[in-house]
Amino acid sequence: MGRHHADEVHDGGVHEHDRGLSYDLPVLARRRMIRLMAGASLVPLVGCTSQDGTPASSSASSAKGSASSSASSAECATIPDETAGPFPGDGSNGVNVLKESGVVRSDITSSFGDSAGGTAEGVPLTVTLTVVDAASGCGTPKRGAAVYIWHCDRAGDYSLYSEGVTDENWLRGVQEADGSGQVTFRSIFPGCYAGRWPHIHFEVYGSLADATAATSITSTSQLAFPKDVCDTVYATDGYDESVRNLSSLSLETDGIFSDGYSRQLATMKGSAAEGYTATLTVPV
């Protein structure tokens, strides 16, 4: 994974956009074990020890602890690194919205500053990302980190870049993580454009100062949406093109999520009528 992923297709254009242990013992080893067990049955069992003298129960406990530690490490792997795509608005591809006054905000549905001042329409969506320290086992929130998110509108267009919305900067914003490592944005559910599964881009920075200076990115990734929620949202007005585009896609064939999406799939609650909430833990 990383920024080397295959390009994404958008409205005809191209844009860039992640048997264990063997239980079969060799025949000789089995025979040797049988002889040892037979001999052991003649000796009173006062206390079992491992070959290094450690009580067997301790060894088992240690092994269990190691397994738990390994499992914990696996569960606490950093968020997969993904491409920022061609429309980041962070200065890496043309325009830089991060240095504009007003980009630090929780409601990103409308444009701000000298932009056209429009508002993106669609099913309401609240996104909460919890940034945690992967090195500490994901138990320590990254208080003071900053997150910049951006995504397309319900027509599949990106503000600042797509034809007709180059004067808008909606659906882009920055938040500083609170004491729980959380950032929350109010937005709309993004559409599905040709060639890409519905998603939200985000960049994590070490601090708000880094984010607004557009420097020292800690992690770049993407959030994916569950299919059942996409189907429900896209059955509402304004998402007509998304229905057709989604029908030819799956998470397993998407150019970004096909190599694994379990740690990027949002947990969803809500309804199309009342709006949805999407939550995701982001270990960095």
Results as ranks from 00 to 15, higher is better:
199 H>I: 07
121 E>M: 12
114 D>T: 15
153 D>C: 03
156 G>S: 11
162 S>D: 10
102 G>L: 10
196 R>Q: 15
204 V>F: 04
112 F>H: 05
158 Y>F: 13
163 E>H: 14
198 P>D: 14
105 R>A: 01
103 V>I: 14
160 L>G: 01
138 C>Q: 02
113 G>V: 06
168 E>G: 09
201 H>Y: 03
132 V>E: 02
104 V>S: 05
153 D>Y: 01
170 W>E: 02
152 C>M: 11
157 D>P: 12
161 Y>N: 10
161 Y>H: 13
209 A>V: 15
172 R>I: 02
180 S>L: 15
125 L>R: 03
171 L>I: 09
120 A>S: 03
117 G>I: 09
117 G>V: 09
132 V>S: 01
192 C>A: 14
125 L>C: 11
124 P>F: 04
210 D>P: 12
108 I>W: 00
158 Y>W: 13
142 K>I: 07
154 R>Q: 13
137 G>Q: 00
178 D>F: 06
105 R>C: 05
186 R>A: 12
186 R>E: 11
205 Y>S: 09
153 D>F: 00
149 I>L: 11
127 V>A: 02
209 A>Q: 15
110 S>R: 12
207 S>K: 13
171 L>S: 05
152 C>A: 12
126 T>S: 14
163 E>K: 14
109 T>C: 04
155 A>N: 12
132 V>H: 00
104 V>A: 04
130 T>D: 00
203 E>M: 15
206 G>K: 00
153 D>W: 01
162 S>G: 12
199 H>R: 09
160 L>I: 08
188 I>M: 12
136 S>P: 06
165 V>R: 00
193 Y>P: 08
129 L>M: 03
133 D>C: 05
200 I>W: 07
131 V>N: 00
160 L>P: 04
178 D>H: 07
183 V>I: 09
112 F>L: 05
134 A>Q: 12
136 S>C: 09
153 D>S: 04
196 R>P: 11
154 R>P: 05
159 S>C: 07
169 N>F: 03
111 S>Q: 07
107 D>L: 06
168 E>A: 13
139 G>L: 02
183 V>D: 00
140 T>P: 07
107 D>C: 09
191 G>A: 14
131 V>L: 01
110 S>T: 14
189 F>H: 11
122 G>R: 03
154 R>Y: 07
181 G>Q: 11
193 Y>I: 11
159 S>W: 01
116 A>Y: 12
197 W>V: 13
196 R>K: 15
137 G>K: 03
105 R>V: 01
124 P>S: 12
116 A>N: 15
196 R>Y: 13
199 H>L: 10
119 T>G: 03
129 L>P: 01
132 V>W: 01
197 W>L: 13
120 A>T: 02
119 T>E: 10
184 T>H: 14
135 A>P: 08
212 T>C: 14
197 W>G: 14
140 T>H: 11
105 R>E: 08
166 T>P: 02
123 V>F: 02
180 S>N: 15
103 V>S: 06
141 P>E: 07
135 A>F: 12
116 A>V: 15
103 V>T: 13
135 A>E: 13
179 G>T: 12
204 V>R: 00
123 V>E: 04
203 E>S: 15
